[in-house]
Design a protein around this nucleic acid. Structure first.
Length: 736
DNA sequence: CTGGGTGCAT
DNA sequence: ATGCACC
């Protein structure tokens, strides 16, 4: 095979010249195609330089994206909205809408006018108050964290997870022949699990379990993407919507990237960057992949240039940075016009009142206050926010934390001072936005010396508690149960930990008998041996037509562009990646892939991935029968009354006051910091055990952990900073 | 006239 | 400290 020879010489070239890539050829199995596979799996991820550079070093990253999140929350709060077209309105915009509305042609970020024109029956719910969305959002994050602490939030409705370690653990106790992909595999109707893709397959199973957990405990559906980095996981997660999941195999990366219709679709490239790139003549993802890096550096600086070009190639070694409590709390409102000092005062006071309340509930003390305005200008009515900030005096800070009503007037005084720093009120002004923000939040120091407690938190004396997240986890009720329970049953080691799901999410047989989200299809779908699969994809995706000049300028000396051109895209991508100094990659592509659209006929994995509009029946039964009548869904979300008024053919739904929570007479034995619903869902024997423990007033188990992430050193600083506050994260996660 | 958040560059 | 960019 001529092509084989060409590739092999290239492969040798790389081994000789790229020192950071150390593929161990000796351990490769024999066979003609091994070189090919090595390139694929071993060269893409170069992030862990100390790791063995094998496929093992590849991360497994999940991205979760809840379907039309605000709309789902409102439909849970008021189930009557389920089968109506529903739009969530902020000011004049429909920020999101449910899928019934989407059938009428509605979409995100439409103006109310357009939306109502398209769908006169549209039900509108105001969504400017984010309280319920924020609460639900943190419940989702917390639930995911119960599986694995490496969860990063992106906005309210997205979460990344690094489940690499979880996958490794599971892989050890699983036979590859027993594995199958759960959900879709990008651009594949079926995929046989082999050594190369086993980790992603396990990741897809984990993702499905977590989606199921989110659904059965919170009633929310969403999509998931499974890939080797955050960028790709996020990009692939939306391939099948709603309520489905998709796995990206590494060699499909090029195809996924070239399916993007514009640079703005690349997460990390936003409006401004796109405009700058446009000025350089770069419009498509491919344009950016091919562009000269030095020129890009000239425009963006080295760091950004490399980053965005890598992104265009599907390369992203950014770590999953665990969620902590928010680092700032802010509240804002926008409006047509505010032009008098009185209006400013009034609006600021409103904002401060709610913000201060939130801050009080948080428990931490803010040390910095910021006021932001947006002025109306004809030319740039777009952006241009201006802000001034100042330290919060001690006496004010204390009043915020303790909930004193004097806090607001004091802050209002501060606000007006800041306001006058920005604006000469003798001149006329026109504001369209006000924002107040608390930042520099510090956990209130306990009776202990603050220095001492800082150190005990930050540097646990022994190997115990290497992860800052786990410190907070012990204060989180769910974790007390589940981890203690798991440890009792599983011999007190983290490594043998089964997914907490089995003791927490599905405590009853009932729940476990639900139609699983898991792939019901037979794992046996033997079509091709691995080598055949590889070969097939190698030959089918050959590229051509790359401008000669570009090629020559990008390739290292000694590599024949003609030869290089013959390589499949994904190989090229990886090769060029390795040619780059450090971790930068550039890519040479063939003509843009025109088949960017998802094939609607691809229902290969459809059966087990159907959208599930309602939480499973037995979960509902269970909730109805639960002692508290006070489960998550009703307690936190279904407690609003709605009044419907007809208004010029438009149904407006406005929220009235919340119904007080149901009584909790049956939970008298449960400590205040324990969620009765969660408790009620535990197996009876665990309940008894816990009750016994509480009666004896034993302290909650502290669980020594040898759990430590290899990435932790790279973000020690950040983790440490969050760690000092992490006792407070439970304020956000704690039910109720 | 989206709201609320994060992180980086300067 | 402030603005920019991003989701």
């Amino acid at each position: 095979m001529i092509k084989s020879d060409i590739l092999f010489s290239l492969y040798l070239y790389i081994h000789i010249s790229v020192s950071c890539v150390e593929v161990n050829m000796d351990t490769d199995e024999e066979g003609d195609n091994d070189w090919d596979r090595s390139l694929e799996s071993d060269m893409l991820e170069t992030g862990g330089s100390t790791d063995r550079v094998t496929s093992i070093s590849q991360r497994v990253i999940l991205h979760f994206d809840l379907d039309c999140f605000y709309a789902q929350v409102e439909m849970i709060r008021n189930p009557a909205l389920r089968n109506k077209p529903l739009g969530i309105q902020q000011k004049y915009l429909i920020v999101t809408c449910n899928y019934v509305a989407r059938e009428h042609g509605l979409n995100k970020l439409m103006s109310v006018t357009d939306a109502v024109e398209k769908c006169p029956q549209l039900v509108l719910v105001k969504g400017e108050d984010l309280t319920h969305y924020r609460e639900m959002s943190y419940k989702v994050t917390e639930l995911l964290m119960s599986y694995c602490p490496l969860v990063e939030r992106l906005g309210f409705d997205e979460n990344f997870m690094d489940v690499t370690e979880m996958v490794e653990r599971r892989l050890k106790e699983t036979c590859i022949s027993d594995l199958s992909f759960n959900g879709h595999v990008y651009k594949h109707e079926s995929m046989v699990v082999d050594e190369e893709n086993a980790r992603l397959a396990v990741g897809s199973v984990i993702a499905a379990e977590m989606r199921q957990a989110i659904f059965s405990t919170l009633g929310l559906t969403g999509c998931a993407g499974i890939a080797n980095n955050k960028l790709l996981a996020k990009l692939v997660s939306g391939t099948f919507k709603p309520n489905q999941q998709t796995t990206l195999l590494p060699y499909s990366t090029a195809e996924l990237m070239s399916s993007l219709t514009g640079l703005i679709k690349v997460p990390g490239i936003g409006y401004k960057t796109r405009e700058k790139l446009k000025a350089l003549g770069l419009v498509s993802v491919r344009d950016l992949q091919l562009y000269s890096l030095p020129d890009l550096v000239r425009e963006f600086g080295e760091v950004t240039a490399k980053r965005i070009q890598n992104l265009a190639c599907g390369i992203d070694d950014s770590p999953v940075t665990p969620a902590g409590p928010p680092q700032s709390l802010s509240d804002e409102d926008s409006f047509k016009k505010i032009s008098t000092l009185e209006e400013v005062q009034k609006k600021t006071e409103e904002l401060l009142t709610s913000l201060t309340e939130r801050m009080h509930k948080d428990g931490r003390r803010p040390h910095t206050f910021r006021l932001t305005i947006r002025r109306y200008t004809v030319t740039n009515r777009w952006f241009s926010r201006e802000s001034r900030q100042c330290p919060i005096p001690n006496h004010t800070g204390l009043k915020i934390t303790c909930g004193s009503s004097e806090a607001v007037p004091q802050l209002l005084g501060l606000s007006m001072k800041l306001f006058h720093k920005m604006l000469d009120t003798r001149e006329p002004f026109h504001l369209t936005l006000l924002n107040v923000c608390f930042s520099n939040l510090q956990a209130k120091s306990s009776s202990k010396s603050s220095i001492a407690s800082f150190f005990t938190q930050k540097f646990p004396t022994t190997t115990q508690m290497t992860s800052q997240q786990q410190v907070s986890m012990y204060d989180f009720p769910y974790f007390r149960f589940t981890q203690a329970d798991v440890l009792h049953k599983e011999d007190k080691t983290w490594n043998s930990m089964k997914p907490i799901k089995h003791t927490w999410i599905s405590p009853t047989q009932e729940l476990q008998t639900q139609p699983p989200l898991i792939n019901s299809k037979s794992p046996r779908q033997p079509v091709l041996e691995h080598s055949q699969v590889t070969k097939m994809n190698t030959t089918e995706s050959c590229m051509s037509n790359v401008p000669e000049k570009t090629l020559c300028s990008r390739l290292p000396p000694g590599v024949d562009p003609e030869v290089f051109k013959l390589l499949p895209e994904h190989i090229q991508m990886e090769l060029i990646s390795s040619f780059q100094s450090e971790d930068t990659a550039q890519l040479i592509y063939g003509p843009a892939d025109t088949s960017s659209d998802v094939d609607p006929a691809d229902h290969s994995t459809w059966a087990f991935n159907q959208p599930a509009p309602e939480p499973c029946e037995s979960a509902l039964n269970y909730n109805r029968n639960s002692a508290s009548h006070n489960h998550e869904l009703s307690k936190n979300l279904s407690s609003a009354q709605f009044t419907v008024e007809l208004n010029s053919g438009l149904v407006k739904v406005t929220e009235s006051h919340d119904i007080p929570p149901a009584s909790q007479e049956h939970q008298s034995d449960v400590p205040a910091n324990v969620d009765p619903y969660v408790f009620s869902q535990l197996p009876a024997d665990v309940q008894r055990e816990l009750l016994t423990e509480w009666r004896q007033q034993k302290p909650v188990l502290k669980i020594p952990s040898k759990h430590s992430h290899k990435t932790s050193s790279t973000r020690d600083k950040k983790s440490a900073a969050k760690g000092s506050q992490c006792n407070n994260i439970l304020k956000y996660f704690k039910p109720n």
